[in-house]
Design a protein around this nucleic acid. Structure first.
Length: 716
DNA sequence: CCCCATGGTGTTTTT
DNA sequence: CACCATGGGG
């Protein structure tokens, strides 16, 4: 028996010991959230319930796996075998597969990734002859993100456009047409995008009584981690699973909501007590992770947040170094400074206890170059996905067709390496295959033996079947010559990626499960997972829920962190601030922040000056120590901490960006100066006056005077 | 119908 | 630079 009294604080214990009825746990960063979930699972099993009855929905599979591993340690051999754990998306896919026939899916259910979906949108747009010759018609990636946002936020496309893509408003009708075509295309071809998984599960549970009964009978204990990042349909799924007065525990932290861009709705966590009447609310506010100086800095970030989360974390770890801010001359010298810091700290910490965090995948390139030069091992999270590499997608295309013969994106992949074959030819071939038009196929084979080879191979593949590993082995035999022809330069490298895929496939016995996981979970193979002695590089988003002894955050400059895409709306900017909060709260002992004075601009191939991130500039100087790089490459203490540039620059944050909410709640700040500005449609214009506090009267050459919401202007 | 050269455009975050 | 849409030539 575990002595919960000894192992947990009173709030944690209450969460662990409350097994009946709904519970909402508001868990501040580092407050032992994982520990609480792990011990609660252990308690459920100790109370005599089967692990089968636990459903643990987390944000990534990695998170679920870690919790299950830790709980198994706690319970010894008894373990937690049988707990269902994973993401909403993978859970949804598993249930949809089980009920595929009942739901009327004849062709199979194939999960598409982003590039598949974008490809289909391109085809639909071309079929509808929309945007021909119009350069400003939204691109396929924009189309997908608008359509997906509209579904995730459950708002009409018009509202999405008005809110965040005002310049595309005139395409509202066309985008609607594309969206409609896209929906029916997916249905016809048995394809699911990420959003369909969630809506499909909701439909299954609400329309198909046997499924709902089975799910409720089985999952008597539902736990949802990172609840602040669920969207509306996910919240409804939780409600459906739990039923009235069900045993559901939601865990989250409103201060760490960083997925609004994908439809996450903080309201879910605030509204939980209404959705589940009688819910017990438990707050975990003691921080066990970070030393007090780190917490002082993260608390200061939160102070600036617009929604004043009345949250002030405290720690018993009073000792620890003050966070340090390093202002370097350029992003390349920043990379050197980071590497030096890592070298210094690696005497005290193992490499995998040190993480370098950044806003966007490509921000780490200079650091990667420096690490490679030194031969230091590192492991990168975030950025591009393993399964999105062209050669991996090629191979998966062959396998996907074994599962779903109507999978158009896969047809395009398996045939497009043949010379003289484009979208039209592919379209005719799969239509003929599905219609059983053997005459046409015979003609195609006569004209192109190569196409015939592919068709024969696919037939053979379907006839032989077998495990995913067996199928993959045959595909590789067929594909290797193609690989070598297609990528003469770097095929050995790609070859090793395919070997990695083989190792992953060998862990599966079911083709659908393998394909689903590959596109939903980015599985790591054992080799990669064992990178014990490697420095961690990660996007802030991918660092969610993790922690390290040392955290170094790089590129704290305007337009990078916050991203320049976030400058149009106050909400987006708030999310960027929370993102920095998430980054800094990952640190246990030491936090280092890096500000390069110039960053390399790839398309000008020149370095350009960069301004310090407003999030850093707004912090009190007492919470960190300032260092400045000398021309010799050494660092020295900067006594007058505040850099002149952040305050004096005409583009300085407070003075020039009224949409920016270091200002009071409404975002209505009278500008302190009238200058020039830029508008997406009208171009550069001169600001003549302010109107109502949140708009400007602007004179645009060629367009005349206009009154425009400050949100839609970029000040210069 | 497909390919390739050309020139304009613009870079987040993830399931 | 890298990506994408376009349009002329095969």
């Amino acid at each position: 028996m575990i002595d919960f009294r000894k192992e947990l604080n009173p709030a944690q214990r209450e969460a662990v010991e409350t097994l009946d009825g709904p519970v909402l746990v508001i868990a501040g960063a580092g407050s032992g959230k994982t520990r609480t979930i792990v011990y609660r699972m252990a308690n459920i099993v100790q109370q005599g319930h089967s692990p089968d009855s636990i459903l643990l929905l987390t944000f990534t599979r990695k998170a679920a796996q870690e919790m299950l591993d830790r709980a198994s340690l706690l319970l010894g051999a008894q373990g937690l075998y049988g707990v269902t754990g994973g993401t909403f998306h993978s859970f949804a896919y598993a249930w949809l597969r089980r009920y595929a026939e009942a739901m009327g899916a004849k062709n199979g259910l194939t999960v598409m990734d982003q590039s598949d979906a974008e490809g289909i949108l391109r085809d639909i747009r071309d079929d509808l002859r929309l945007g021909k010759g119009d350069r400003s018609f939204p691109k396929r990636s924009t189309l997908l993100s608008l359509i997906s946002k509209s579904r995730n936020k459950e708002m009409p496309i018009a509202d999405i456009l008005r809110g965040e893509a005002y310049h595309l408003s005139r395409y509202e009708d066309e985008i609607g047409l594309v969206a409609k075509g896209y929906e029916s295309f997916k249905t016809r071809h048995g394809l699911l995008d990420y959003d369909d998984l969630l809506f499909g599960l909701e439909r299954l549970l609400s329309d198909h009584a046997p499924a709902l009964e089975l799910a409720r009978a089985r999952y008597r204990f539902v736990m949802v981690d990172e609840f602040q990042d669920t969207n509306l349909v996910q919240a409804r799924i939780v409600r459906l699973l739990a039923g009235d007065g069900g045993n559901v525990m939601a865990v989250g932290d409103d201060a760490q909501s960083i997925y609004a861009f994908r439809g996450a709705n903080v309201h879910n966590i605030l509204d939980f007590p209404n959705q589940f009447p009688g819910a017990k609310i438990i707050r975990l506010e003691q921080n066990y992770r970070s030393a007090q100086p780190v917490l002082d800095l993260t608390n200061a970030i939160l102070e600036q947040a617009q929604l004043k989360f009345r949250k002030h974390l405290f720690s018993e770890r009073k000792d620890g170094p003050l966070p340090q801010v390093f202002r370097t001359l350029s992003d390349r010298s920043q990379a050197n400074a980071v590497v030096n810091k890592v070298l210094e700290l690696s005497k005290k910490y193992p490499l995998h206890e040190i993480a370098v965090l950044f806003r966007a995948g490509y921000h780490s390139y200079p650091v990667e170059v420096a690490l490679n030069k030194l031969g230091m091992r590192f492991q990168k999270f975030g950025g591009l996905r393993f399964s999105e590499a062209a050669h991996i997608k090629d191979v998966l295309g062959f396998m996907r067709l074994g599962q779903n013969p109507a999978d158009v994106p896969s047809w395009q992949r398996v045939l497009s390496h043949i010379k003289g074959v484009g979208p039209k030819t592919v379209g005719r071939i799969y239509e003929a295959v599905l219609a059983g038009d053997n005459a046409h196929l015979a003609g195609v084979r006569r004209r192109s033996p190569e196409i015939g080879e592919v068709l024969d191979f696919l037939d053979e593949q379907r006839a032989l079947g077998g495990t995913p590993a067996a199928m993959l082995a045959r595909v590789l035999e067929f594909y290797t010559p193609i690989l070598e022809r297609k990528y003469p330069d770097d095929y050995p490298q790609r070859r090793s990626g395919l070997e990695q895929l083989e190792r992953i496939a060998s862990q599966y016995s079911d083709l659908e499960a393998f394909l689903g996981d590959i596109s939903l979970e980015n599985p790591q193979d054992e080799d990669e997972r064992g990178k014990e002695h490697a420095l961690v590089l990660s996007t802030v988003h991918s660092s969610k829920g993790l922690e390290w002894s040392v955290v170094l955050v790089i590129d704290l400059v305007q337009d990078r962190f916050p991203s320049r895409h976030a400058l149009n709306s106050a909400d987006d900017l708030e999310e960027e601030r929370r993102l920095l909060y998430v980054a800094c709260t990952r640190a246990r002992d030491y936090l280092g922040l890096f500000v390069p004075s110039t960053v390399y601009n790839q398309y000008n191939h020149s370095s350009e000056p960069a301004l310090e991130s407003p999030f850093l500039a707004e912090l009190p100087e007492t919470v960190y120590e300032s260092w400045r790089e000398n021309f010799s490459g050494t660092m020295s203490r900067a006594r007058d901490a505040a850099p002149a540039q952040a305050l004096a620059s005409p583009r300085s944050f407070g003075a020039s960006a009224p949409a920016a909410p270091s200002a009071p709640a409404t975002g209505k700040v009278p500008p302190s100066r009238l200058g020039y500005c830029r508008h997406k449609i009208f171009g550069r214009g001169k600001i003549v006056a302010t109107v109502d506090g949140d708009k400007y009267r602007v004179n645009f050459p060629g367009f005349g005077l206009k009154v425009i919401l400050a949100n839609f202007l970029e000040l210069e």
